[in-house]
Amino acid sequence: METRPLGDTGHDSTVMTFGAIALNWLEQEGANQLVEHVLDYGVNHFDVAPTYGDAELKLGPKLRQHREEIFLGCKTQERTYEGAWRKLDRSLNRLGVEKIDLYQVHGLEYDEELNEITGDDGALTGFREAKEQGLIDHIGLTSHGDPGLILDALDRIDDLESVMFPLNPVVAGKDGDEYDYEAVLARADEKNVGTLGIKAFAGGSWPPTDELPEADRPFANWYRPVTAPDEIRERFDFAAAQGLTSVINAGDPKLITMILEAAADYDGMDEAAQRSVIERARHDDSPVPEQLHH
């Protein structure tokens, strides 16, 4: 599988990152098998979080067995110094490892949070101490919030080495600043910060729960994913062709093999084909249904 340099970290990540949230829906034996399956494809970057049910615990055994082959990303939603330290200790324990390669501020959403994590008593102070002590190697940040906020974070956090954010054709087809994750990608590239793409496979939102109760949803994703092999491939190619360092799989284990296949076969997507994917997504949720043209 193709690899790309993850910013300045010195690590070359495979163009697909394994989002280990998928393990949460499997028994331990199935989880072990899935990790072996993912490693068979050569995937070398894993991403997990304490909020993904017991994904950390289920990842543990195979992670320890293959520790050298895996660049491990983990994250915390804590914003304070103490909270971050607590969660880091907990994750190290649950994963059963000595070190996390990339520790990320998880799900930054508000300006106040950026102030908080960058303050003296903020999470990043804890991250930096942990880095000095060799418990983590690199610092990252994840957000599906406002692109402007991520841009601010890139400007304000000098030792930031990766950012994780949404990128897909639906978002790419929208013009407003609130959708301008392309600007985040460009700024991150400028600063040589690694870029990890989420929501590449998002098809749309689920119907309201009175129409489709949560328990009746066929996939364990927060959004309705695309599911046909061709669409999965197209979405993967699109995301990878935007220039992200690596694309994270949709969370549902049923989709992983299709995504692995797409990642293994990836060999670029030209611009006319990228626009074609954007155009299709635009028409699929167009406010003007009677369109005859593009």
Partner: peptide, 19 residues
């Protein structure tokens, strides 16, 4: 080249069929 392939979506199909 603006689009290749050109995505003729469900909404295009139904608009042309109506036409």
């Amino acid at each position: 080249t603006l689009l290749e392939p050109v995505p003729w979506t469900e909404s295009h199909v139904s608009a042309h069929a109506d036409e």
